[in-house]
Design a protein around this nucleic acid. Structure first.
Lengths: 211, 211
DNA sequence: GTAACCTAAATTGGCGCCAATTTTGGATAC
DNA sequence: GTATCCAAAATTGGCGCCAATTTAGGTTAC
């Protein structure tokens, strides 16, 4: 239970920060790649002050989700195929490297917890907004990665997922792909329950590459 | 040559930013772990304005090099053994994963370039400041990692090296260890030249773990 | 119709200022 | 000597304002 509380607590608190509001709109495809983010528009949109907007934009620029052009403002980065491919490659390296640890750490209650999050994702496929879907997906993956035992790695992967604006609108191009992602979640859990490290690795790779 | 220019150009530009000044002082051990960073002191120290200081501190806080305590200010994070160990583990996973690619990509001129950087590090061991040593080390490793062909990974590793304030003062506790690092650089280059992937991996691991 | 120019409007960038909060140091009580 | 209290000093946090820069739209020339 403590893990569940911790996952939901910080997120609730952070949801109030302008940085997250903007990020959510980028990820949801509301603020499209190439869009110029005018500070005064953002003030009005998110009902906050200029300094707050500026801090949020600077943070997003540091994460390379938006680009700062001096005296002109900030715009959402265009998708960069090279970067996306490289980030996927990094994720595959990291997530397959900890597959064996995940499998050996997965007690029955952890597997049940994962199954519950995978079910929640399936539910969001049916009934949720794009953002809810994204967050359900993230919750599942964070929980999965936490079994690897390296908290820095969990945070790192969560962070780099955002680097290429793996927005739902670009991540899941078809309803069929979304549903396959849901099935893959369950297949990963099956592999873990069966202690099958190689299957888990293969599934992780397939999942990240979206094939 | 183009690579060398690119490496030195951005660095020269960034060296003027307060974020980097503060970061350098943290890495050099001037601003020790636990030190409270008073904004008005930093203004005076780096001869800049309050907004610049604030932006720099926020950025460093985002990178978790400093911690923000509301209404009290910012302080340099204390070393965290768990985080350092986890970051090392991540680095080992990533850097050994691309060892084969490094070896296959290493043409003679690349090897010569690495050798030159390793020699430069040795020179800094003898004659350089702690900061120059740190930067020579970083230059060597960036060049090495670039051979892996994944630019995001190069930037990522550069970034996470800083997370645990791998300051020279804590990274190299003895002169002997510094000199060994220099020898290991050359041994890595030898392994690459010999096409010996497994030796390179072992050396990378040993190097990161500082044993 | 297109290009160049100019001006007003819009926006960004950054500084100064002050309210809010914390820290410091002295006075007082025990 | 130690603990508590209080006021002054120091610092942080954030807002308002305005200079600097860019954009947008109208006018003129070809």
């Amino acid at each position: 239970m403590a893990d569940v509380v911790m996952e939901e607590g910080p997120e609730a608190a952070e949801a109030r920060d302008v940085t997250d509001f903007i990020l959510q709109d980028i990820l949801a495809g509301v603020l499209l790649p190439g869009t110029w983010l005018k500070q005064i528009d953002l003030e009005r949109r998110y009902k906050c002050t200029r300094p707050e907007v500026r801090r949020a934009l600077d943070r997003l620029a540091q994460k390379r989700l938006v680009e700062h052009v001096p005296n002109r403002g900030y715009h959402v980065y265009e998708p960069d195929g090279r970067r996306a491919q490289e980030v996927s490659e990094i994720r595959i390296i990291l997530e397959t490297a900890i597959a064996a640890t995940i499998v050996s750490n997965a007690a029955a209650d952890e597997i049940a917890k994962l199954r519950k999050l995978a079910d929640h994702f399936d539910l969001m496929v049916l009934n949720g907004t794009m953002l809810e879907l994204y967050e359900a997906n993230l919750a599942f993956h964070r929980q999965l990665l936490t079994l690897g035992g390296n908290l820095e790695l969990v945070d790192l992967i969560t962070e780099i997922r955002q680097r290429t604006s793996s927005a739902p609108v670009s991540q899941w191009r078809t309803r069929a792909r979304v549903e396959q992602s849901g099935r893959e979640h369950h297949q990963m859990i099956d592999a873990i329950a069966a202690g099958d490290v190689e299957s888990l690795k293969a599934l992780v790779r397939q999942h990240i590459l979206q094939r």
